[in-house]
Each structure stands twice: as C-alpha cells, then as structure tokens.
Design a protein around this nucleic acid. Structure first.
Lengths: 155, 155
DNA sequence: TTAGATGCAAATGTTTTGCATTGCG
DNA sequence: CGCAATGCAAAACATTTGCATCTAA
C-alpha cells in the first residue's frame, strides 16, 4: 500500500460523499494501482497493474475512474504527446502547479516550478485582457545521459 | 488569391524540387484554402474550403498535404485541446517562435512572443542538463469581451 | 515512362457510450 | 430497495495506411 494512499483515499471518500457516488472495490484497486507505480502513468499501464490486483476490470472502468480522480483532485491529466494521456498523482497538501521537461530520446519526465515564468505569464495574459484560468508549458529536449552517452539512466 | 500565397508557393516549389516531389493541382488548391481563411484552421474547415475550390478532394489528401506543409516550413501544427490539430501559416521572412493565449469561452487565439520567458525556459532546461529542442506554452483564460459582456467580438 | 500522388475504403489507436447486469449505501 | 457502477461490445473521433488508379515531371 503506497505512502499517500490513505490521504488520497480520504479525499476520494469525501468527494464521493458530497456527490452521492459510490466507493467500489474497483475504484479502490485503481487508486492503489495508480499510487504504486511510476509518477506518470498512461491508461494501459494502469489497467495492467489494476488487473494484477483485481482481474477482470474493464478498461472503460479505468477511463471513467481516472476522470473521476481528476475531478476529485487526486490526479492530474497530461497530454504530452499525441499518444495516450498520462496521469500523475496530485500532491496531498501543497498541490503547487508545476510544469514538465520531457526527454524526447528516453521519455523521462522531469518536473519543475518557476515562479518567475508564472509571473511573466500572468503579466502577458493581463496585457491582452485575459483572466488566466490555467496554463500548460512543456519543454522538449534531450537529457544529459542520452545526449552524452546515448544511455538512459531510468529505463 | 491571398497576400502571401506567392511566397508560400515558392517555398513549397523549392521544397518539392529538393525532395523530388510533385506539385499537384490538389496541393495548390489546399495551399490557397489554407492561406485564405482564419489564421488557425483544423482539417475539417480546410477540407470544406478546399472542396469549395476543387470538389472531390479526399480528406486523406488534406491530412497528407498539411504534414507536407509542416515539413516544408510553411505551416505550423498546434494541439491546443484534445480535439483535432490546428494549422497556422508560418510567417514568410521572420518566423519567430510564438506562443498562444486561448480563450476557453470563445476559442479566440491570441499570439504572443516573450523573450524573457524563452530565456528562463532555456535556463531551467540547462539547470536540469537538458538540451532544449522545442517547447509548447499555452495560456488558457477568458478574454475581455467574454468576461465582461459575455459577447465574443470575433465569431 | 515512371515514381509519386490521389481517392476511396479500411485499419488504427484512444476514448466514450449504450445497455443489461451487479452491487454499494 | 434504488440508483450508481461495472463489463462488454459497439460507437465515436482523429488520423493513418493499403491499394488500384491517375498524373506531373
């Protein structure tokens, strides 16, 4: 059982109570699978791990559940490439916005946070009369290991 | 015939010559359609306009051709939302990189360029040992007209 | 003449949906 | 018990591909 399982489980329970939804064995299993693997997972990986713990779960259930997790604030959805979406656990307490550096050679994903950039984004938006609600910033490049030795240190 | 048609046509011709490809009536028509409408177009709009000028063009041809235009450097492809990709004409001379502000209420797209942000992005990437090849930055918000009067001034 | 381009239909890959059945509250 | 959730299959959607035919060079 992953470290932050209890906190996420509590949040989910509270969200379901508020919305009149039900906590099923599938949803608990998907939550466990979601929190036990790599930080960024796509549906197919999630489905595989979920089925390891609870055979027979349908893929539609995983899609529906991840959507629910996003609404409940325990997951974030990212679309880095044109392929399948990836999901990332939301931090329990401080869920600061962060952005991503993506290595196009080994698919490694590094997170970063930069207040200066965020401030400039707000200023740009304001300058055009926009009230900002969200943003997306993805930096694509080649990480050190891949650039110098062609060796990926993470997978 | 749109303003920048000739320049784009020249670039395309040159690219095709280099690659041993052929300039067909369809490709010329798609170029004309591409340059005659809104700055940002999706395939279906492009197909409609193309067929108005040249009935019978297949959608696969438009997909293939836009891919070609991107390679030839006369179009940029953007994936703002999860829907279909949008294409934008590249500026003939100075094709500076720019980013986008997207109004989630009226789908208006405003372009901007901010060297300070670009510089900070480079610095962030370098700090993580990445050699940057590309980036994507999209700011989502509500534009002035929609926020104050619920009226969109562009569509 | 011939390699490349086209149009159609079919395949692909991701995600959503309809529906009969199951199960949580 | 009743409404929500599930699993399955099918649909939806954007995009790509196979292939016979056509056409620019």
């Amino acid at each position: 059982m992953p470290a932050n399982y209890d906190a996420a489980h509590d949040r989910l329970t509270e969200y379901m109570r508020r919305k009149g939804l039900k906590l099923t064995r599938q949803r608990e299993t998907i939550l466990r699978a979601f929190l036990s693997g790599q930080k960024h997972v796509a549906i197919d990986g999630l489905l595989a791990e979920t089925r390891r713990l609870h055979p027979g779960v349908g893929h539609a259930t995983v899609y529906r559940t991840m959507k629910l997790f996003v609404e409940a604030g325990i997951a974030h959805e990212h679309n880095f490439t044109d392929g399948p979406a990836q999901y990332e656990p939301a931090e329990a307490g401080n869920d600061e916005h962060h952005d991503h550096l993506i290595c196009t050679a080994c698919d490694r994903i590094v997170e970063f946070e930069n207040d200066e950039i965020e401030a400039l984004q707000d200023r740009v938006a304001a300058g055009h009369g926009f009230r900002l609600t969200d943003h997306r910033m993805q930096l694509f490049g080649v990480c050190e290991g891949m650039a110098t030795r062609g060796i990926c240190s993470i997978r």
